[in-house]
């Protein structure tokens, strides 16, 4: 099933990936080609088959709830693009009332 340009815009918004000139056609074309191959999955009968999300034998391992040292505030912020007063700074997310 080919992807439309409207679907590309929707998915890009969900994925928070900006679109530049030519991107819509590019993704629509390339993703449609890949999805055409992927559509062969529909040939496989899977009515009674349970899905496999992971292949490890352990499920929900627990540990003692004991505090241990973590990163210091300085270490946690060392790679931040715009730290301020010990916080991560981001552009405003709300308009002033």
């Amino acid at each position: 099933m080919p992807l439309t340009r409207a679907q590309v815009r929707h998915v890009a918004q969900l994925a928070r990936i900006g679109l530049e000139a030519g991107d819509e056609e590019f993704y629509a074309d390339q993703l449609s080609g890949i999805l055409e191959h992927i559509d062969r999955l529909q040939e496989v009968p899977t009515d009674d088959i349970a899905p496999t999300a992971q292949v490890v034998e352990v499920t929900n391992p627990l540990r003692e709830d004991v505090p241990r040292p973590g990163l210091t505030q300085e270490e946690a912020l060392a790679n931040a693009p715009a730290p301020v007063n010990g916080f991560f700074r981001v552009p405003s997310i709300q308009e002033e009332a």
Partner: peptide, 13 residues
């Protein structure tokens, strides 16, 4: 897509 692929993963395993 996703659920179907996970079921096919079971068959491959």
């Amino acid at each position: 897509y996703y659920l179907k692929a996970q079921k096919v993963r079971t068959l491959i395993k």
